[in-house]
Write a protein that binds this DNA or RNA. Sequence first.
DNA 1: ATTACTACGCGCCGAGTAA
DNA 2: TTTACTCGGCGCGTAGTAA
Lengths: 219, 219
Amino acid sequence: MNDAYAQRLLRELAMRGAIQGYVVVSTTDIGRKLGISQQSASRWLTELAEMGLIRKERFGKNLKVKITQEGEFILRRAWFEHILIFGTPEVITLKGTVMSGLGEGRYYVMREGYRRQIREKLFFDPYPGTLNVKVYPTYRKKVAELREGDCVMLRGFTEGGKTFGRVKAFHATVNGYPGALIIPEMSHYRDVIEIIADVSLREKFGLRDGDEVEIRVYL
Amino acid sequence: MNDAYAQRLLRELAMRGAIQGYVVVSTTDIGRKLGISQQSASRWLTELAEMGLIRKERFGKNLKVKITQEGEFILRRAWFEHILIFGTPEVITLKGTVMSGLGEGRYYVMREGYRRQIREKLFFDPYPGTLNVKVYPTYRKKVAELREGDCVMLRGFTEGGKTFGRVKAFHATVNGYPGALIIPEMSHYRDVIEIIADVSLREKFGLRDGDEVEIRVYL
DNA sequence: ATTACTACGCGCCGAGTAA
DNA sequence: TTTACTCGGCGCGTAGTAA
């Protein structure tokens, strides 16, 4: 296997926690995520193990894998290069409580005009819905800063005669899970922010209104 | 072209400055760096341009390329993921002046026992020689901190009856150029540090004894 | 020296399938 | 359900070469 494939797969495994220790994975799932077949995913994993970049063991019907030190070296080099390219990120941490939206989040995310851009610019297929978070008053200033910060811009468009405005997006995590924070340019909220991810964050973390979450924005 | 190749090539181009604007590249050179043939490098670049991830133009006998916004999105996503995996680096900046070593740097780096590990763990083939930098007194404390920090460890070995000790290595840049800072565990110097890279840093920056350099260590 | 075309053959991908 | 084998076909990488 070549270098490029190895790096791509190692990163996917590392995102699942395979640096800290063994992680259960499925070849079907990895294949889907990387856009290759289950068979190829299986073969890639085998080759990665033969190259000594991962340890791989059967775990019932599944596999468990962990990245070796050699594999970690490769990832660290890539990490280092990306940091030379873009610099170290400014990380803004926000805290607040989950609140119910009025379902507009879902409505907007489902518009193909936004959805396509999210796939193209943020690289995930958004779960149709947003997590609304009311940030604690102390963080309002940081939210205001964000509005000025460097962002991924989602263009506005018209669809069925309706006009949808530009939306600012930022790579972010909620309780450590990756997604994006979005701020419609026209929105006037100062303390309510919206988060999107490739899964339902409410379900993933079993969140109910009033639960506290931590959001980290990387810019 | 698939995702993994695109990312690998985009990163290589970004490291050459193709995000800021057009950069002159040669397919031979890129091929060598990525471990593929000149012909493949040529085809990869063409395909990357067709995918809209780079702009490519002839520049005399060479090419000049620049990464488009779509290409940058892909790199930024990878940057974000690497930061989720390893966190944001602590960057330690050191300043000092170039000084002549006694040629031991060259002697040590040439030992195959170290050289192989540098290729495997730091991912470059070291130029046979080190840049010795005497850091200003204010930075001595930072150097001492480094000795304790998280590092890439180069194992000791014996060669021809001589024993070579363990060496701590850190990803680092000199005046922005990537390489590594190395600290032999047995060394007792407090204010002299050694840098290795894949080229002669003295030549690259036209350095003479007494010239000031800035070293950034990423850990 | 470049880049990049054509040809060709190896090897990779994925369908089918066994365990 | 899984993983991972075999196998057939096509895509990719490289040699040769033109410009």
